[in-house]
Design a protein around this nucleic acid. Structure first.
Lengths: 198, 198
DNA sequence: TCCTTTGTGGAACGTTCATTCCAGGTTACG
DNA sequence: CGTAACCTGGAATGAACGTTCCACAAAGGA
């Protein structure tokens, strides 16, 4: 049963893999790139994670879980709605800037054609659904707290917010100061209560 | 000087290449894929277009020119601002739906890491700058025509519109009916004149 | 008609890719 | 102390990649 202990930390290796995939994309990342970043050998990588795609799916899953967890924590926090939103979206932007304007792992994967692979598509779907659910419940609470007008289309507002966020993370790779330019008017729009049902 | 005439149409071949790159991305497309779609031989491809990256850059350039031309034509057309915007953004969405939710060639390329290659980055930059310029002048005209309130931050509004459009084209690959859901409130926000300078 | 120029098909090249395999080392339980 | 279980480094494999090369065909000017 026993054997030599692993010479690496599984979670640590996985989080290194996340970074590499994030920066270079799935196709743009070679096994060699991964081994170097994860600091383990070919054998260990294959025996621990299966193959490249399995590693990617797991990395994507972990990334999503962490991203959503942080998103929830910030949005459930104290303070006015607009301030929490600014912080929640700002955090996503900070993370991508820290990786050299690498965008968003979800968005990059979708754009790379991730939806064409069923295994990857399944994981990608959960990100949008969970993000949407959190925003909907956040906006619903804001309506109850009279921070948003009664009759606000919380569903449309949630989808719209995600769209703006993804668009900003994408274009931020091309126009680094874009987020700072559009965040204020975006938040003003939300605060203005323009999203009432038609 | 003379020689046998080419057995293919350069422009036609290029537009086939655009489709393939659009659907599969730069890295996801092999020379074999291109030859099959363009219906020419290896030799002809290399002697006509140089190599894979040169072909991609040229394809991207043509795609941008056509996209911008259509965008301008629609926005310069008759009718109220909101209607022209709806049509202009709708056309982009229709195009991506026709290719099986392939998103946007610009966005896909950026997400794939296109900004890391100087030759590609240069072309990508022109797309955003030109799109922004067109929207700014469109919004300026709308302000003069009193379709938008005086004091509208046309620059922020242009960047914001591009962001929403790119975000929708990205997420549309994952959530096919997203565009229909967010377009109405988006256009309502623009029409409401919420983008006045602070 | 010859000869230069151009286009084409296919073989061939070297590289890189993801993946597998194996030999040797290390651990802990019996 | 031995032995079964496990981990690791590196060689090896075969497929796919982008690219080059070459021999032949086709065309028009001399």
């Amino acid at each position: 049963m026993p054997g030599p202990p692993k010479q690496f930390d599984r979670d640590e290796a996985l989080s290194r893999a996340i970074e590499v995939f994030w920066e270079q994309g799935y196709l743009g990342t070679s096994i060699e790139d991964l081994l170097e970043a994860m600091e383990l050998s070919r054998s260990s990588m294959y025996s621990t994670f299966g193959d490249k795609k399995a590693l990617f799916v797991e990395a994507l899953q972990v990334w999503i879980d962490e991203e959503i967890a942080q998103f929830v924590e910030t949005l459930r926090g104290p303070g006015p709605l607009i301030e929490r939103l600014r912080q929640a979206f700002g955090q996503r932007h900070e993370a991508q800037k820290a990786l050299g304007n690498a965008g968003c792992l979800f968005g990059n994967t979708v754009a790379e054609g991730g939806m064409q692979d069923p295994d990857i598509a399944r994981v990608l779907d959960t990100f949008v659904r969970r993000g949407e659910r959190i925003l909907v419940s956040t906006f619903e609470a804001a309506v109850r707290a009279k921070e948003l007008p009664k009759g606000t289309d919380v569903h449309a507002l949630a989808l719209f917010s995600i769209t703006v966020s993804q668009g900003a993370l994408l274009l931020g790779q091309n126009t680094p100061d874009l987020f700072e330019q559009i965040a204020p008017p975006f938040l003003r729009v939300i605060g203005s209560g323009a999203f009432t049902e038609s």
